[in-house]
């Protein structure tokens, strides 16, 4: 059992969730309600990581963030360290890969809030930000929670992109999914088995949590009141 790899994975997942939470709330709300030029394109781009092979995505990220790319050069100049084959690069890749998981469930939840409620909020004198906080979020939070749970679980299991962008540097980019592959390559089935079991347990609890949340969402946010 590679505890370091598990710790790294959890660390990566936590960062990804933390960075994607505001993106999930504001991005999903914008995609649900706002009308702007190129909305369809943005929607498509956000969904793209779902269908694109992780290696392809990883390849483009590698090229885009590499030391020879303009972005990579700016990053290196700013932080004195390259993005690829580093934890920061891994976080960046993970954020991009998880966009569909972070946005889509939240977007569905925002879309389920009747437009009349937002109009009523505005007519009640609530500014858009107040309406988000007092009306939209209380109604859409199960969707946002679902998005975050999915993002977390998906980050723990991500393999292709991590391998392409991060390589397998222990303590820096060697996540648990990579560690399992690594152990299998070394014919260490026992370690691979234990780690797989840990991931399996995490995945099952995630799915159960998501199911419970989506059930709650279908029932609506009204709780407790006897009928």
């Amino acid at each position: 059992m590679d505890w370091q790899a598990l710790g790294l994975s959890l660390h990566l997942a936590a960062w990804t969730v933390a960075l994607l939470l505001p993106v999930s709330v504001f991005g999903a709300r914008a995609l649900a309600f706002a009308t702007f030029r190129g909305k369809a394109l943005v929607g498509a781009l956000v969904t793209l990581p779902l269908v694109l092979p992780p290696t392809v995505l990883g390849f483009y990220l590698l090229v885009g963030m590499g030391a020879n790319s303009p972005f990579g050069q700016v990053w290196t100049a700013l932080f004195g360290q390259g993005l690829v084959f580093s934890f920061s690069g891994l976080v960046a890749a993970s954020v991009l890969v998880n966009l569909p998981f972070a946005i889509q469930p939240a977007q569905r939840a925002f879309e389920a809030v009747p437009p009349a409620l937002r109009e009523a909020a505005a007519c009640s004198g609530l500014s858009p930000l107040q309406a988000l906080w007092r009306v939209d979020l209380p109604l859409a939070w199960p969707g946002i929670m679902t998005a975050m749970v999915l993002t977390f679980a998906h980050t723990l299991g991500e393999f292709g992109v991590v391998l392409m962008v991060g390589g397998s540097i222990p303590g820096e980019t060697k996540t648990i999914a990579i560690a399992i592959y690594d152990r299998v390559q070394a014919f260490d089935d026992r370690s691979a088995g234990i780690m797989s079991l840990v991931l399996l347990a995490i995945s099952i609890s995630t799915i159960m949590a998501t199911l419970a949340l989506s059930q709650r969402m279908r029932r609506g946010p009204v709780q407790g009141a006897p009928r």
């Binding site: 009747p114 009349a116 109009e119 009523a120 609506g220």
Partner: peptide
């Protein structure tokens, strides 16, 4: 002050 046909009360 606006009253909507669909009530539009905040359900939560």
């Amino acid at each position: 002050g606006m009253v909507f046909q669909s009530y539009a009360l905040f359900p939560h």
